[in-house]
């Protein structure tokens, strides 16, 4: 029986508490920090001559789908009634949204050190950062980046990605000029903040830990990526005649991306899971849209 992932704004007070409690229990058991490490370890940039599975690569979407499934399975071992909610950042666009309330994500960081001091993920309430690139052991945020304000992606930004009829194109990296994957991931040409769109821009808007390799430290990471995952499902529905994943076959030895990207039926480390395995989620979960 498939379970349902819901918009975070539709959760009742009790449902919010159950989700938060399950996250806190994973943290206390040490399981949460293993997810933080996995994400750090798999961030490989496309200027490096190594295999990329998580970012700047066609498997950005299936890799994160599997990552979310693992997290959700861990949550559901704690509380079988919990699923990962999604944050539709085209609609809940300000730090005043209920998402950032004290009973869900908590609010922005304070000035100076950007320390989050409200809600369940504040240091003072017991959320201790253990895997980070900064020396503080507290979660940081800078919602909306007030010193140089930045808006969340809009419906038009999402449409710019959804309108692409091809999943991804060569060179299969952050410089791909077309393709749904790179446009949703959010690497765009141009100048200034226009270069960081959709998924990338949300990481920037939240700021603090969400900006770095250790972004998973901020539980809003999961709500953000659930919406990215929903958009992938929606794109598939809107483009039933498009190949659901590309490349179909691994790049040949004489091609620059040889052994640097994963093709449709190759495993995505650290799992044996292939993009093909992640093309649909029927029978596992559905989105209430």
């Amino acid at each position: 029986m498939a379970y349902t992932r819901r918009n975070q704004r539709s959760l009742s007070r009790a449902e919010r508490r159950r989700f938060v409690d399950a996250v806190l229990r994973l943290k206390r058991r040490g399981e949460y920090d293993a997810f933080v490490r996995t994400h750090i370890d798999h961030y490989v940039s496309d200027g490096e001559n190594r295999r990329r599975v998580a970012h700047m690569t066609p498997t950005f979407l299936p890799w994160h789908r599997r990552f979310l499934l693992d997290f959700e399975r861990a949550l559901r071992r704690v509380d079988a009634g919990v699923t990962v909610p999604y944050w539709d950042w085209t609609k809940d666009r300000t730090p005043a949204a209920s998402l950032w309330g004290e009973d869900l994500m908590g609010g922005t960081g304070r000035r100076g050190d950007r320390r989050v001091s409200t809600g369940p993920f504040a240091r003072g309430n017991g959320w201790i950062i253990k895997e980070s690139v900064t020396d503080g052991d507290f979660l940081t945020r800078d919602l909306g980046r007030p010193a140089a304000p930045l808006a969340l992606p809009t419906r038009q930004d999402v449409a710019w990605a959804m309108g692409e009829t091809v999943y991804d194109v060569s060179p299969w990296d952050s410089t791909a000029s077309r393709g749904f994957r790179n446009r949703l991931e959010g690497w765009a040409p141009g100048t200034g903040d226009a270069r960081w769109r959709n998924h990338n821009r949300v990481h920037r808007w939240v700021g603090g830990h969400m900006l770095g390799g250790a972004s998973v430290n901020d539980p809003v990471f999961w709500l953000h990526h659930a919406f990215v995952d929903l958009l992938w499902s929606r794109w598939q529905r809107q483009h039933p005649d498009s190949a659901p994943f590309l490349p179909e076959r691994p790049p040949a030895p004489d091609e620059p991306q040889h052994r640097r990207v994963v093709a449709r039926r190759e495993p995505m480390p650290p799992w044996r899971t292939t993009p093909q395995d992640m093309l649909g989620h029927q029978g596992i979960y559905r989105y209430a849209e």
């Binding site: 000035r111 100076g112 050190d113 980070s132 690139v133 900064t134 020396d135 800078d142 700021g207 770095g212």
Partner: peptide, 9 residues
């Protein structure tokens, strides 16, 4: 991004 009171680990 580090702000005034954070250092690298």
């Amino acid at each position: 991004e580090l702000g005034t009171r954070q250092s690298l680990a």
